[in-house]
Design a protein around this nucleic acid. Sequence first.
DNA 1: ATAAAAAGTGAGTAATCACTCACATAAAAA
DNA 2: TTTTTATGTGAGTGATTACTCACTTTTTAT
Lengths: 218, 218
Amino acid sequence: MKEFEEMMNTLHPPSEEKKLTPKQEQILKAAVEVFAEKGYASSSTSEIASRANVAEGTIFRHYKTKKELLIAIVKPFMRGFAVPFFAARFVNEVFDVPPEKLEDLLKTLIKNRFEFVKENAPLLKIVLQELAFHPELKEQFQAVFYDEIFPKFEAAIDQLKEKGAVVEFSNATIIRMIMSPIIGFLVTRFLIAPDLPWDDDKELDQTVHFIMHGLSNS
Amino acid sequence: MKEFEEMMNTLHPPSEEKKLTPKQEQILKAAVEVFAEKGYASSSTSEIASRANVAEGTIFRHYKTKKELLIAIVKPFMRGFAVPFFAARFVNEVFDVPPEKLEDLLKTLIKNRFEFVKENAPLLKIVLQELAFHPELKEQFQAVFYDEIFPKFEAAIDQLKEKGAVVEFSNATIIRMIMSPIIGFLVTRFLIAPDLPWDDDKELDQTVHFIMHGLSNS
DNA sequence: ATAAAAAGTGAGTAATCACTCACATAAAAA
DNA sequence: TTTTTATGTGAGTGATTACTCACTTTTTAT
Protein backbone atom coordinates (compact mmCIF):
# COMPACT_ATOMS: atom_id res chain seq x y z
CA MET A 1 0.00 0.00 0.00
CA LYS A 2 2.73 2.41 0.96
CA GLU A 3 4.44 1.85 -2.33
CA PHE A 4 1.36 2.57 -4.30
CA GLU A 5 0.75 5.85 -2.54
CA GLU A 6 4.25 6.88 -3.46
CA MET A 7 3.54 5.95 -7.02
CA MET A 8 0.38 7.96 -7.03
CA ASN A 9 2.36 10.88 -5.71
CA THR A 10 4.69 10.66 -8.65
CA LEU A 11 1.71 10.29 -10.94
CA HIS A 12 0.18 13.43 -9.56
CA PRO A 13 2.99 15.45 -8.08
CA PRO A 14 2.18 18.14 -5.53
CA SER A 15 2.96 20.87 -8.04
CA GLU A 16 -0.41 20.43 -9.72
CA GLU A 17 -2.19 18.29 -7.18
CA LYS A 18 -5.57 17.30 -8.45
CA LYS A 19 -7.06 16.10 -5.13
CA LEU A 20 -8.09 12.68 -6.29
CA THR A 21 -11.09 11.12 -4.63
CA PRO A 22 -10.50 7.66 -3.11
CA LYS A 23 -12.49 6.03 -5.90
CA GLN A 24 -10.40 7.83 -8.47
CA GLU A 25 -7.23 6.43 -6.92
CA GLN A 26 -8.74 2.97 -6.99
CA ILE A 27 -9.55 3.42 -10.66
CA LEU A 28 -6.01 4.51 -11.54
CA LYS A 29 -4.48 1.68 -9.56
CA ALA A 30 -6.73 -0.90 -11.15
CA ALA A 31 -6.21 0.53 -14.63
CA VAL A 32 -2.43 0.33 -14.27
CA GLU A 33 -2.78 -3.28 -13.18
CA VAL A 34 -5.09 -4.33 -15.97
CA PHE A 35 -3.34 -2.38 -18.73
CA ALA A 36 0.00 -3.90 -17.75
CA GLU A 37 -1.46 -7.41 -17.55
CA LYS A 38 -3.49 -7.52 -20.74
CA GLY A 39 -2.43 -4.53 -22.76
CA TYR A 40 -4.59 -1.48 -23.37
CA ALA A 41 -6.65 -2.85 -26.25
CA SER A 42 -7.50 -6.09 -24.45
CA SER A 43 -8.47 -4.35 -21.23
CA SER A 44 -12.16 -3.70 -20.66
CA THR A 45 -13.49 -0.80 -18.68
CA SER A 46 -15.84 -3.22 -16.95
CA GLU A 47 -12.93 -5.24 -15.58
CA ILE A 48 -11.12 -2.11 -14.46
CA ALA A 49 -14.30 -1.00 -12.71
CA SER A 50 -14.87 -4.27 -10.91
CA ARG A 51 -11.22 -4.54 -9.88
CA ALA A 52 -11.41 -1.00 -8.53
CA ASN A 53 -14.65 -1.78 -6.65
CA VAL A 54 -16.35 1.00 -8.51
CA ALA A 55 -19.28 1.26 -10.91
CA GLU A 56 -18.34 1.43 -14.54
CA GLY A 57 -20.04 4.80 -14.85
CA THR A 58 -17.68 6.22 -12.25
CA ILE A 59 -14.74 5.73 -14.61
CA PHE A 60 -16.42 7.79 -17.29
CA ARG A 61 -17.40 10.43 -14.77
CA HIS A 62 -13.70 11.22 -14.37
CA TYR A 63 -12.30 10.20 -17.75
CA LYS A 64 -14.32 10.91 -20.84
CA THR A 65 -12.88 7.98 -22.78
CA LYS A 66 -10.81 4.88 -22.13
CA LYS A 67 -7.89 6.50 -23.93
CA GLU A 68 -8.10 9.53 -21.67
CA LEU A 69 -7.63 7.15 -18.76
CA LEU A 70 -4.53 5.73 -20.43
CA ILE A 71 -3.08 9.18 -20.93
CA ALA A 72 -3.84 10.17 -17.35
CA ILE A 73 -1.66 7.25 -16.31
CA VAL A 74 1.21 7.49 -18.77
CA LYS A 75 1.74 11.23 -18.98
CA PRO A 76 2.73 11.84 -15.34
CA PHE A 77 5.01 8.81 -15.49
CA MET A 78 6.98 10.23 -18.38
CA ARG A 79 7.17 13.65 -16.81
CA GLY A 80 8.23 12.09 -13.52
CA PHE A 81 11.00 10.17 -15.22
CA ALA A 82 12.34 13.31 -16.82
CA VAL A 83 12.37 15.50 -13.71
CA PRO A 84 16.05 15.10 -12.76
CA PHE A 85 17.14 15.95 -16.29
CA PHE A 86 15.45 19.31 -16.04
CA ALA A 87 17.85 20.34 -13.29
CA ALA A 88 19.98 23.17 -14.62
CA ARG A 89 23.06 21.49 -13.14
CA PHE A 90 22.76 18.52 -15.47
CA VAL A 91 24.84 19.60 -18.46
CA ASN A 92 27.26 21.69 -16.43
CA GLU A 93 28.11 18.76 -14.22
CA VAL A 94 29.04 16.70 -17.23
CA PHE A 95 31.16 19.59 -18.50
CA ASP A 96 33.07 20.15 -15.31
CA VAL A 97 33.58 16.67 -14.00
CA PRO A 98 36.96 15.12 -14.86
CA PRO A 99 36.54 12.28 -17.38
CA GLU A 100 37.61 9.62 -14.90
CA LYS A 101 34.77 10.70 -12.60
CA LEU A 102 32.26 10.69 -15.43
CA GLU A 103 31.50 7.02 -14.92
CA ASP A 104 30.54 7.66 -11.30
CA LEU A 105 28.35 10.57 -12.28
CA LEU A 106 26.52 8.45 -14.82
CA LYS A 107 26.13 5.66 -12.29
CA THR A 108 24.52 7.97 -9.79
CA LEU A 109 22.12 9.34 -12.34
CA ILE A 110 21.21 5.93 -13.71
CA LYS A 111 20.75 4.36 -10.30
CA ASN A 112 18.46 7.18 -9.35
CA ARG A 113 16.31 6.71 -12.46
CA PHE A 114 16.45 2.96 -11.93
CA GLU A 115 14.78 3.36 -8.56
CA PHE A 116 12.07 5.47 -10.12
CA VAL A 117 11.36 2.83 -12.75
CA LYS A 118 11.52 0.09 -10.13
CA GLU A 119 8.72 1.75 -8.20
CA ASN A 120 6.67 2.01 -11.38
CA ALA A 121 7.55 -1.16 -13.27
CA PRO A 122 4.04 -1.76 -14.66
CA LEU A 123 4.08 1.75 -16.05
CA LEU A 124 7.26 0.95 -17.95
CA LYS A 125 5.52 -1.96 -19.60
CA ILE A 126 2.48 0.10 -20.50
CA VAL A 127 4.58 2.87 -22.03
CA LEU A 128 6.74 0.53 -24.09
CA GLN A 129 3.66 -1.33 -25.30
CA GLU A 130 1.34 1.51 -26.12
CA LEU A 131 3.81 4.09 -27.40
CA ALA A 132 3.68 2.35 -30.76
CA PHE A 133 -0.05 2.81 -31.29
CA HIS A 134 -1.12 6.08 -29.72
CA PRO A 135 -0.04 9.32 -31.37
CA GLU A 136 -0.94 11.24 -28.22
CA LEU A 137 1.63 9.24 -26.28
CA LYS A 138 4.22 9.69 -29.00
CA GLU A 139 3.74 13.43 -28.81
CA GLN A 140 4.21 13.37 -25.07
CA PHE A 141 7.29 11.20 -25.50
CA GLN A 142 8.70 13.57 -28.08
CA ALA A 143 8.02 16.57 -25.86
CA VAL A 144 9.83 14.99 -22.92
CA PHE A 145 12.69 13.09 -24.49
CA TYR A 146 13.43 14.52 -27.92
CA ASP A 147 12.77 18.14 -27.08
CA GLU A 148 14.06 18.28 -23.51
CA ILE A 149 16.43 15.50 -22.57
CA PHE A 150 18.18 14.66 -25.83
CA PRO A 151 19.41 18.22 -26.55
CA LYS A 152 21.07 18.27 -23.16
CA PHE A 153 22.69 14.96 -23.89
CA GLU A 154 23.91 16.28 -27.21
CA ALA A 155 25.49 19.32 -25.60
CA ALA A 156 27.32 17.08 -23.16
CA ILE A 157 28.43 14.70 -25.88
CA ASP A 158 29.75 17.51 -28.07
CA GLN A 159 31.83 18.71 -25.14
CA LEU A 160 33.22 15.24 -24.54
CA LYS A 161 34.06 14.86 -28.20
CA GLU A 162 36.10 18.07 -28.10
CA LYS A 163 38.04 16.70 -25.19
CA GLY A 164 38.64 13.59 -27.27
CA ALA A 165 37.09 11.49 -24.54
CA VAL A 166 34.46 9.92 -26.73
CA VAL A 167 34.50 8.10 -30.03
CA GLU A 168 33.50 10.07 -33.13
CA PHE A 169 30.11 8.57 -33.85
CA SER A 170 27.09 10.73 -34.57
CA ASN A 171 25.32 12.05 -31.51
CA ALA A 172 22.20 10.09 -32.34
CA THR A 173 24.24 6.91 -32.51
CA ILE A 174 25.98 7.63 -29.24
CA ILE A 175 22.71 8.38 -27.50
CA ARG A 176 21.32 5.12 -28.82
CA MET A 177 24.38 3.27 -27.53
CA ILE A 178 23.95 4.82 -24.11
CA MET A 179 20.27 4.06 -23.89
CA SER A 180 20.09 0.61 -25.46
CA PRO A 181 21.97 -1.30 -22.76
CA ILE A 182 20.11 0.57 -20.04
CA ILE A 183 16.72 -0.12 -21.53
CA GLY A 184 17.85 -3.66 -22.28
CA PHE A 185 18.63 -4.09 -18.60
CA LEU A 186 15.36 -2.54 -17.45
CA VAL A 187 13.31 -4.70 -19.79
CA THR A 188 15.13 -7.86 -18.74
CA ARG A 189 15.03 -6.89 -15.09
CA PHE A 190 11.37 -5.94 -14.80
CA LEU A 191 9.54 -7.44 -17.74
CA ILE A 192 11.29 -10.57 -18.97
CA ALA A 193 12.77 -12.07 -15.82
CA PRO A 194 11.72 -10.07 -12.76
CA ASP A 195 11.93 -13.14 -10.50
CA LEU A 196 15.60 -13.86 -11.03
CA PRO A 197 17.85 -13.06 -8.02
CA TRP A 198 19.15 -9.79 -9.38
CA ASP A 199 22.10 -7.88 -7.97
CA ASP A 200 20.92 -4.54 -9.27
CA ASP A 201 23.95 -2.52 -8.20
CA LYS A 202 26.34 -4.91 -9.84
CA GLU A 203 24.35 -5.03 -13.07
CA LEU A 204 24.13 -1.26 -13.22
CA ASP A 205 27.85 -0.84 -12.53
CA GLN A 206 28.68 -3.32 -15.25
CA THR A 207 26.25 -1.72 -17.66
CA VAL A 208 27.82 1.70 -17.15
CA HIS A 209 31.28 0.15 -17.46
CA PHE A 210 30.20 -1.45 -20.73
CA ILE A 211 28.86 1.83 -22.10
CA MET A 212 31.90 3.88 -21.10
CA HIS A 213 34.39 1.42 -22.55
CA GLY A 214 32.31 0.93 -25.67
CA LEU A 215 32.31 4.66 -26.32
CA SER A 216 35.85 5.40 -25.19
CA ASN A 217 38.22 6.75 -27.80
CA SER A 218 41.02 4.20 -27.79
CA MET B 1 5.53 -7.92 -54.81
CA LYS B 2 8.86 -9.63 -55.26
CA GLU B 3 9.81 -8.81 -51.72
CA PHE B 4 6.67 -10.24 -50.30
CA GLU B 5 7.09 -13.51 -52.12
CA GLU B 6 10.53 -13.79 -50.62
CA MET B 7 9.05 -13.11 -47.20
CA MET B 8 6.44 -15.78 -47.72
CA ASN B 9 9.19 -18.17 -48.66
CA THR B 10 10.90 -17.51 -45.36
CA LEU B 11 7.58 -17.84 -43.60
CA HIS B 12 7.00 -21.22 -45.16
CA PRO B 13 10.38 -22.57 -46.13
CA PRO B 14 10.57 -25.30 -48.76
CA SER B 15 11.51 -27.86 -46.13
CA GLU B 16 7.91 -28.19 -45.02
CA GLU B 17 6.17 -26.40 -47.84
CA LYS B 18 2.46 -26.21 -47.13
CA LYS B 19 1.32 -25.35 -50.68
CA LEU B 20 -0.58 -22.25 -49.76
CA THR B 21 -3.50 -21.30 -51.95
CA PRO B 22 -3.42 -17.79 -53.40
CA LYS B 23 -6.15 -16.66 -51.02
CA GLN B 24 -4.19 -18.03 -48.10
CA GLU B 25 -1.18 -15.96 -49.12
CA GLN B 26 -3.39 -12.91 -49.39
CA ILE B 27 -4.69 -13.58 -45.90
CA LEU B 28 -1.19 -13.90 -44.41
CA LYS B 29 0.00 -10.78 -46.17
CA ALA B 30 -2.99 -8.76 -45.02
CA ALA B 31 -2.76 -10.10 -41.49
CA VAL B 32 0.91 -9.09 -41.21
CA GLU B 33 -0.02 -5.63 -42.42
CA VAL B 34 -2.94 -5.13 -40.09
CA PHE B 35 -1.31 -6.70 -37.03
CA ALA B 36 1.74 -4.50 -37.47
CA GLU B 37 -0.35 -1.38 -37.98
CA LYS B 38 -2.88 -1.75 -35.19
CA GLY B 39 -1.57 -4.49 -32.95
CA TYR B 40 -3.09 -7.93 -32.65
CA ALA B 41 -5.86 -7.07 -30.19
CA SER B 42 -7.06 -4.07 -32.17
CA SER B 43 -7.08 -5.91 -35.48
CA SER B 44 -10.39 -7.33 -36.63
CA THR B 45 -10.71 -10.41 -38.76
CA SER B 46 -13.21 -8.53 -40.90
CA GLU B 47 -10.59 -5.91 -41.81
CA ILE B 48 -8.00 -8.57 -42.54
CA ALA B 49 -10.52 -10.30 -44.77
CA SER B 50 -11.46 -7.20 -46.70
CA ARG B 51 -7.84 -6.13 -47.12
CA ALA B 52 -7.05 -9.62 -48.41
CA ASN B 53 -10.02 -9.51 -50.82
CA VAL B 54 -11.38 -12.61 -49.23
CA ALA B 55 -14.53 -13.54 -47.35
CA GLU B 56 -14.22 -13.57 -43.60
CA GLY B 57 -15.19 -17.22 -43.52
CA THR B 58 -12.18 -18.07 -45.65
CA ILE B 59 -9.86 -17.00 -42.86
CA PHE B 60 -11.48 -19.43 -40.45
CA ARG B 61 -11.46 -22.18 -43.06
CA HIS B 62 -7.64 -22.15 -42.77
CA TYR B 63 -7.09 -20.90 -39.23
CA LYS B 64 -9.41 -22.07 -36.50
CA THR B 65 -8.97 -18.92 -34.44
CA LYS B 66 -7.52 -15.45 -34.78
CA LYS B 67 -4.67 -16.42 -32.48
CA GLU B 68 -3.84 -19.40 -34.68
CA LEU B 69 -3.41 -16.93 -37.52
CA LEU B 70 -1.00 -14.91 -35.39
CA ILE B 71 1.02 -17.97 -34.56
CA ALA B 72 1.12 -19.05 -38.20
CA ILE B 73 2.76 -15.72 -38.91
CA VAL B 74 5.17 -15.38 -36.02
CA LYS B 75 6.44 -18.93 -35.65
CA PRO B 76 8.11 -19.24 -39.06
CA PHE B 77 9.64 -15.81 -38.61
CA MET B 78 11.37 -16.81 -35.40
CA ARG B 79 12.54 -20.08 -36.86
CA GLY B 80 13.76 -18.27 -39.95
CA PHE B 81 15.75 -15.84 -37.87
CA ALA B 82 17.44 -18.65 -35.99
CA VAL B 83 18.44 -20.72 -39.02
CA PRO B 84 22.06 -19.52 -39.37
CA PHE B 85 22.72 -20.20 -35.71
CA PHE B 86 21.85 -23.85 -36.17
CA ALA B 87 24.81 -24.28 -38.48
CA ALA B 88 27.27 -26.61 -36.80
CA ARG B 89 30.13 -24.29 -37.74
CA PHE B 90 28.81 -21.51 -35.54
CA VAL B 91 30.54 -22.18 -32.23
CA ASN B 92 33.67 -23.64 -33.79
CA GLU B 93 34.20 -20.56 -35.88
CA VAL B 94 34.16 -18.40 -32.79
CA PHE B 95 36.60 -20.79 -31.14
CA ASP B 96 39.09 -20.88 -33.97
CA VAL B 97 39.06 -17.36 -35.25
CA PRO B 98 41.84 -15.17 -33.86
CA PRO B 99 40.43 -12.53 -31.47
CA GLU B 100 41.30 -9.65 -33.80
CA LYS B 101 39.18 -11.24 -36.52
CA LEU B 102 36.28 -11.83 -34.13
CA GLU B 103 34.87 -8.39 -34.82
CA ASP B 104 34.67 -9.16 -38.54
CA LEU B 105 33.01 -12.50 -37.88
CA LEU B 106 30.39 -10.85 -35.72
CA LYS B 107 29.84 -8.15 -38.32
CA THR B 108 29.21 -10.72 -41.02
CA LEU B 109 26.74 -12.60 -38.87
CA ILE B 110 24.92 -9.50 -37.73
CA LYS B 111 24.70 -7.99 -41.22
CA ASN B 112 23.25 -11.24 -42.45
CA ARG B 113 20.58 -11.27 -39.77
CA PHE B 114 19.99 -7.57 -40.34
CA GLU B 115 19.02 -8.27 -43.93
CA PHE B 116 16.61 -10.92 -42.79
CA VAL B 117 14.93 -8.54 -40.37
CA LYS B 118 14.94 -5.79 -42.98
CA GLU B 119 12.91 -7.98 -45.31
CA ASN B 120 10.46 -8.73 -42.50
CA ALA B 121 10.33 -5.49 -40.57
CA PRO B 122 6.59 -5.67 -39.79
CA LEU B 123 7.14 -9.11 -38.34
CA LEU B 124 9.73 -7.68 -35.95
CA LYS B 125 7.15 -5.23 -34.68
CA ILE B 126 4.51 -7.92 -34.26
CA VAL B 127 6.88 -10.19 -32.34
CA LEU B 128 8.10 -7.46 -30.00
CA GLN B 129 4.55 -6.33 -29.35
CA GLU B 130 2.79 -9.63 -28.87
CA LEU B 131 5.50 -11.64 -27.15
CA ALA B 132 4.46 -10.01 -23.90
CA PHE B 133 0.88 -11.26 -23.99
CA HIS B 134 0.79 -14.67 -25.65
CA PRO B 135 2.24 -17.63 -23.76
CA GLU B 136 2.30 -19.65 -26.99
CA LEU B 137 4.68 -17.12 -28.52
CA LYS B 138 6.82 -17.05 -25.39
CA GLU B 139 7.20 -20.81 -25.59
CA GLN B 140 8.25 -20.59 -29.20
CA PHE B 141 10.68 -17.81 -28.31
CA GLN B 142 12.11 -19.88 -25.50
CA ALA B 143 12.48 -22.91 -27.75
CA VAL B 144 14.36 -20.94 -30.37
CA PHE B 145 16.46 -18.50 -28.38
CA TYR B 146 16.90 -19.80 -24.85
CA ASP B 147 17.19 -23.48 -25.73
CA GLU B 148 19.03 -23.26 -29.04
CA ILE B 149 20.88 -20.01 -29.62
CA PHE B 150 21.86 -18.90 -26.12
CA PRO B 151 23.67 -22.12 -25.16
CA LYS B 152 25.85 -21.76 -28.23
CA PHE B 153 26.57 -18.18 -27.30
CA GLU B 154 27.50 -19.28 -23.80
CA ALA B 155 29.92 -21.88 -25.08
CA ALA B 156 31.61 -19.26 -27.23
CA ILE B 157 31.72 -16.76 -24.39
CA ASP B 158 33.24 -19.26 -21.97
CA GLN B 159 35.96 -19.93 -24.51
CA LEU B 160 36.66 -16.23 -24.92
CA LYS B 161 36.79 -15.76 -21.18
CA GLU B 162 39.46 -18.44 -20.87
CA LYS B 163 41.53 -16.64 -23.47
CA GLY B 164 41.09 -13.52 -21.36
CA ALA B 165 39.59 -11.76 -24.35
CA VAL B 166 36.38 -10.80 -22.65
CA VAL B 167 35.48 -9.07 -19.42
CA GLU B 168 34.43 -11.28 -16.50
CA PHE B 169 30.72 -10.53 -16.37
CA SER B 170 28.18 -13.29 -16.12
CA ASN B 171 27.24 -14.92 -19.41
CA ALA B 172 23.68 -13.68 -19.13
CA THR B 173 24.94 -10.14 -18.68
CA ILE B 174 27.31 -10.43 -21.62
CA ILE B 175 24.61 -11.82 -23.86
CA ARG B 176 22.36 -8.96 -22.85
CA MET B 177 25.11 -6.47 -23.65
CA ILE B 178 25.60 -8.00 -27.07
CA MET B 179 21.93 -8.06 -27.91
CA SER B 180 20.76 -4.75 -26.43
CA PRO B 181 22.62 -2.42 -28.82
CA ILE B 182 21.67 -4.59 -31.78
CA ILE B 183 18.01 -4.68 -30.88
CA GLY B 184 18.22 -1.00 -30.02
CA PHE B 185 19.47 -0.32 -33.53
CA LEU B 186 16.85 -2.53 -35.17
CA VAL B 187 14.03 -0.90 -33.24
CA THR B 188 15.28 2.59 -34.03
CA ARG B 189 15.99 1.69 -37.65
CA PHE B 190 12.73 -0.03 -38.50
CA LEU B 191 10.15 1.00 -35.94
CA ILE B 192 10.96 4.41 -34.49
CA ALA B 193 12.59 6.24 -37.39
CA PRO B 194 12.52 4.11 -40.54
CA ASP B 195 12.42 7.21 -42.77
CA LEU B 196 15.73 8.69 -41.65
CA PRO B 197 18.54 8.44 -44.26
CA TRP B 198 20.28 5.51 -42.64
CA ASP B 199 23.76 4.28 -43.51
CA ASP B 200 23.12 0.75 -42.35
CA ASP B 201 26.63 -0.56 -42.87
CA LYS B 202 28.16 2.26 -40.90
CA GLU B 203 25.70 1.89 -38.05
CA LEU B 204 26.27 -1.84 -37.87
CA ASP B 205 30.04 -1.45 -37.92
CA GLN B 206 29.87 1.11 -35.16
CA THR B 207 27.47 -1.02 -33.15
CA VAL B 208 29.80 -4.01 -33.32
CA HIS B 209 32.75 -1.76 -32.48
CA PHE B 210 30.83 -0.50 -29.46
CA ILE B 211 30.01 -4.00 -28.27
CA MET B 212 33.54 -5.35 -28.72
CA HIS B 213 35.15 -2.44 -26.92
CA GLY B 214 32.56 -2.47 -24.20
CA LEU B 215 33.24 -6.11 -23.49
CA SER B 216 37.01 -6.07 -24.00
CA ASN B 217 39.14 -6.93 -21.01
CA SER B 218 41.31 -3.86 -20.63
C1' DA C 1 -17.49 -38.45 -66.63
C1' DT C 2 -18.53 -38.86 -61.90
C1' DA C 3 -17.81 -38.74 -57.27
C1' DA C 4 -15.47 -36.92 -53.36
C1' DA C 5 -12.87 -33.72 -51.08
C1' DA C 6 -11.12 -29.11 -50.48
C1' DA C 7 -11.64 -24.23 -50.83
C1' DG C 8 -14.49 -20.28 -50.71
C1' DT C 9 -18.59 -17.60 -49.31
C1' DG C 10 -21.51 -14.26 -46.55
C1' DA C 11 -25.53 -13.85 -43.82
C1' DG C 12 -26.30 -14.86 -39.13
C1' DT C 13 -25.22 -15.09 -33.89
C1' DA C 14 -24.21 -14.61 -29.19
C1' DA C 15 -21.03 -12.14 -26.55
C1' DT C 16 -18.66 -8.21 -25.41
C1' DC C 17 -17.40 -3.54 -25.97
C1' DA C 18 -17.08 1.61 -24.70
C1' DC C 19 -20.05 4.78 -23.44
C1' DT C 20 -24.76 7.19 -21.90
C1' DC C 21 -28.20 8.74 -18.88
C1' DA C 22 -31.65 9.29 -15.47
C1' DC C 23 -31.31 8.99 -10.90
C1' DA C 24 -29.19 8.78 -5.89
C1' DT C 25 -26.09 10.36 -2.57
C1' DA C 26 -22.59 13.16 -0.55
C1' DA C 27 -20.00 17.55 -0.10
C1' DA C 28 -19.70 22.41 -0.45
C1' DA C 29 -21.68 26.88 -0.77
C1' DA C 30 -25.25 29.97 0.32
C1' DT D 1 -31.09 24.88 6.78
C1' DT D 2 -31.51 25.19 1.87
C1' DT D 3 -29.44 25.13 -2.52
C1' DT D 4 -26.02 23.96 -5.60
C1' DT D 5 -22.53 21.30 -7.23
C1' DA D 6 -19.67 17.22 -7.43
C1' DT D 7 -19.44 12.41 -7.13
C1' DG D 8 -21.21 7.83 -7.68
C1' DT D 9 -24.38 4.31 -9.74
C1' DG D 10 -25.93 0.43 -12.89
C1' DA D 11 -29.29 -0.78 -16.20
C1' DG D 12 -29.50 0.12 -20.97
C1' DT D 13 -27.69 0.82 -26.04
C1' DG D 14 -25.88 0.57 -30.54
C1' DA D 15 -21.79 -0.95 -32.56
C1' DT D 16 -18.41 -4.33 -33.18
C1' DT D 17 -16.38 -8.69 -32.28
C1' DA D 18 -14.71 -13.60 -33.38
C1' DC D 19 -16.62 -17.32 -35.08
C1' DT D 20 -20.38 -20.70 -37.34
C1' DC D 21 -22.82 -22.97 -40.88
C1' DA D 22 -25.45 -24.18 -44.74
C1' DC D 23 -24.40 -23.58 -49.22
C1' DT D 24 -21.67 -22.91 -53.84
C1' DT D 25 -17.64 -23.38 -56.53
C1' DT D 26 -13.31 -25.40 -57.62
C1' DT D 27 -9.95 -28.97 -57.55
C1' DT D 28 -8.56 -33.67 -57.24
C1' DA D 29 -9.28 -38.68 -57.43
C1' DT D 30 -11.36 -42.53 -59.49
